[in-house]
């Protein structure tokens, strides 16, 4: 009898230890995957941000015109933003940033629309950004920092974006979101 009890208790303890070790291992793996996903989302967001920041400072540079289009959808996202700038050879170039709808995701009972950021030079696709944006908003600001729709009054451009990465199964999905924003002052918006 004593022999059976000893073996039973040993089995219980070893099972408990094994379950704890497995649980720790599973949590560590999940954490590593989450960190990698978050890092990729952040890196992609900042790369796009860097391009936008450098290019928006050149709005109207060497050209007679500046911003020619700023269109927003019902969700408040900027679906089209066009402006003139000079290219590397000194010729006028019309640059357009547009948003294209991608997949919709159901996350936490809420439907999320993802967008792809496209970039065009004189109507030809050239570069772009993430295809997992949930938000991309460009706002013109006047001299006092107040929003304006008037290009002649605009002195600053505020850009805000949210890049999202889905993680997990359909039934238990989580959306990592990376936020970014900046306000630039193109010298030719005067």
């Amino acid at each position: 009898m004593q022999f059976i009890l000893d073996n039973l208790s040993a089995l219980l303890v070893s099972t408990a230890v094994l379950l704890m070790v497995l649980s720790t291992q599973f949590t560590a793996q999940r954490s590593a995957a989450e960190q990698t996903i978050a890092y990729v989302a952040k890196k992609q967001t900042l790369e796009t941000a860097d391009t936008i920041e450098r290019e928006f400072l050149l709005i109207g540079d060497g050209t007679d015109e500046t911003i020619v289009d700023l269109t927003t959808n019902v969700a408040g996202n900027t679906t089209s933003f066009s402006f003139w700038r000079e290219d590397e050879l000194g010729a006028d170039m019309l640059v357009a940033y547009t948003l294209t709808e991608q997949d919709s995701l159901m996350v936490g009972g809420e439907m999320r629309q993802l967008y792809r950021l496209n970039r065009f030079e004189n109507g030809l696709a050239s570069g772009g950004g993430s295809s997992t944006l949930t938000d991309f908003r460009i706002t013109l600001l006047d001299m006092t920092g107040a929003p304006t729709v008037s290009v002649p009054d605009a002195r600053l451009i505020r850009v805000a974006a949210v890049n999202a990465y889905p993680y997990g199964s359909d039934s238990d999905m989580y959306l990592f979101r990376s936020f970014w924003g900046i306000t630039v002052r193109p010298m030719n918006l005067e």
Partner: peptide, 18 residues
């Protein structure tokens, strides 16, 4: 930090302008 960066830079630009 990225969010704070955005609001601080905007305030800086507005002060610079005005």
């Amino acid at each position: 930090e990225l969010m704070a960066n955005a609001v601080v830079l905007e305030r800086m630009e507005v002060i610079d302008l005005t």
